[in-house]
């Protein structure tokens, strides 16, 4: 990357995203950990709740999102801890790019990872519980819900990794704040799985969209002040 003046926002964002994806493609550490973890969570749920193969739609929506969120926390923590430990964060900061572009790139990368996990989880979940979860509606909800989760998650993870107690801090910071996104996502997913009429699902979709916009824009506004040393 040439350091002649400021790189455009999107170029910088794509560069950060590309760097993350390429690193992940080489090591596959993060994705494999997230996937195995997600699978384990599903198995634990099966025993803990004594689930039958025919699952109530409301319950599968809940289990699906809890699994995604736990796996997502793993990914978020890792993705920013790696930057911190290898000193990449300082390198990124020295680069003449907009801080917001770093945030956007990291958040996009985390989003992609979560979506990959979801893309594998959804059909697997369907096989385990003998239901078809890969519906266009559910895919839409996963896209929106993961976006909101990752928007706040990336912001908070970049704070958590700079704290002494970073391994335990992220879920504690993230979960109470992200509850509205989870509630809306679970309800919307449940609605699609139960094949409810669209009028009953639409309020949740709208809410999810509104949350995504609010959380993403606030994250953009305040991210500058997290990365400045």
């Amino acid at each position: 990357m040439k350091a002649t003046g400021a790189v455009s926002f999107w170029q910088a964002t794509l560069a950060v995203l590309w760097k993350d994806l390429a690193a992940e493609w080489r090591s596959r550490e993060l994705l494999s950990a997230m996937l195995v973890f997600a699978l384990l969570v599903i198995f634990i749920f099966n025993f803990a709740l004594e689930l039958q193969t025919q699952l109530r739609a409301g319950l599968s929506a809940g289990i699906l999102w809890v699994t995604l969120i736990f796996a997502g926390t793993l990914g978020l923590n890792r993705s920013l801890a790696v930057e911190k430990d290898r000193g990449c964060l300082d390198g990124l900061l020295l680069a003449p790019v907009d801080r917001a572009a770093i945030y956007a790139g990291k958040a996009l990368a985390n989003w992609v990872f979560m979506l990959i996990v979801a893309a594998i989880m959804l059909p697997l979940f369907g096989i385990f519980y003998n239901a078809s979860l890969v519906l266009p509606g559910v895919v839409l909800v996963v896209l929106l819900g993961a976006e909101g989760y990752v928007a706040v998650g990336t912001l908070l993870a970049s704070m958590a990794v700079q704290a002494r107690t970073r391994d335990i801090l992220l879920p504690i910071l993230l979960f109470p704040v992200v509850i509205p996104v989870v509630v809306a996502a679970v309800k919307a997913t449940g609605g699609y799985l139960q094949a409810l009429p669209l009028e009953e699902i639409r309020p949740w979709l709208n809410l999810l969209g509104v949350y995504d916009v609010i959380f993403t824009s606030v994250a953009f506004m305040v991210f500058d002040s997290i990365l400045e040393e």
Partner: peptide
């Protein structure tokens, strides 16, 4: 700085919740 950011994000999430 971090406290300020979290206070803002947290307060925002309250009405949403």
């Amino acid at each position: 700085r971090f406290g300020a950011v979290y206070a803002i994000v947290g307060f925002l999430s309250v009405p949403l919740t």
